[in-house]
């Protein structure tokens, strides 16, 4: 019995972690380039709504789910473009612009939802699939091979983004722009262009994460559906020390705590659930407090715009 519960908790944690993973990897790219994007949460909300709406209008099974996600990526990239324009081109204060983008995204998503949908409606969305042979392996099968296809796509993005960041010329430029923009500029790297590319990429990833949330995870849209996940993802980037694998572990740890908290309510274990709800967030604070060296790993010009004509 206990063994089954534990397996169930772990199996439920994996799809939960995907939202954090997708936003986290996107956020890692723009922080590596030196831009601090707090607006991920707002972009996620717009992405969640657009994905949901496309699926809701099309009503044609799997194809419309993917179309919804592609639409969400497009809208996310557009919102990322706004952020890039304001923070990179106009060199505005990044933290405040991020919060403004969060409000903008929440407002737009909430308004469109009220106007076009109104009440709570559910969609079919992407169902979890059981991979034929592999899913019948006793424990590992349930944990690893009973999820929807986006879970595997997201996990594949971890090595892909590592490769992109460490082994390609573009990735090295990104890192250079985030640690020594003046040196990168001297070597002929267009600092602002690389930063804008990173912010737009992060926006697209956040839009996809939002669409994952509404299409694959909850199969509906509700007001404030993201519930702070975008901000947690920013914390997870710090926790993961700006590495894709670190973010993966952080996302898994956090969603494991979340899933544990949920199962306490489901199985009716005699434990005050109010405390259990706090548990994942407490875990993040504790872990962040004890990973004190993470500031050293941070991109050194994080949050500072680059002025080409000025001295440092």
């Amino acid at each position: 019995m206990l063994f089954e519960i534990v397996t169930g908790i772990i199996a439920a944690a994996i799809p939960l972690s995907i939202t954090f993973l997708l936003v986290g990897i996107g956020e890692m790219f723009n922080q590596k380039a030196g831009v601090f994007n707090l607006g991920a949460e707002g972009i996620m909300m717009v992405g969640a709504f657009v994905g949901f709406y496309v699926e809701y209008v099309m009503q044609s099974g799997t194809g419309s789910s993917f179309l919804g996600m592609i639409a969400a990526i497009g809208v996310g990239a557009l919102m990322g473009g706004i952020m890039a324009l304001i923070c990179v081109k106009f060199k505005a204060e990044q933290g405040i612009a991020g919060i403004a983008l969060y409000m903008l995204g929440w407002g737009i998503a909430g308004m469109l939802f009220r106007v076009y949908i109104g009440g709570t409606t559910s969609i079919v969305g992407l169902k979890a699939i059981e991979i034929p042979v592999l899913s019948s392996i006793p424990v590992i099968g349930q944990i690893l091979f009973t999820h929807n296809i986006m879970v595997y796509v997201a996990f594949a993005l971890v090595p892909l983004s590592w490769y992109l960041l460490n082994k390609t010329a573009w990735g090295l430029k990104v890192k250079a722009v985030g640690t020594a923009p003046r040196a990168a500029d001297t070597m002929g790297v267009n600092v602002d262009r690389i930063r804008m590319q990173c912010v737009i990429l992060a926006g697209a990833m956040a839009g996809l994460a939002g669409a994952y949330l509404s299409i694959c995870q909850t199969h509906m849209y509700a007001d404030n559906i993201t519930a702070g996940r975008g901000f947690i993802a920013v914390a997870l980037v710090y926790f993961g020390k700006w590495k894709p694998t670190g973010i993966l572990w952080g996302a898994l740890l956090f969603s494991l705590a979340h899933s544990f908290q949920r199962s306490i309510q489901v199985y009716g274990i005699d434990f005050p659930y109010e405390i259990a709800v706090v548990f994942p967030y407490l875990l993040v604070i504790v872990v962040l407090a004890f990973s004190g060296r993470s500031n050293i790993m941070a991109p050194s010009v994080l949050g500072r715009p680059y002025y080409r004509e000025q001295r440092d």
Partner: peptide
């Protein structure tokens, strides 16, 4: 209004 406030701050 949330969206408008966001735009104002931006």
């Amino acid at each position: 209004i949330l969206a408008i406030q966001g735009l104002i701050i931006l």
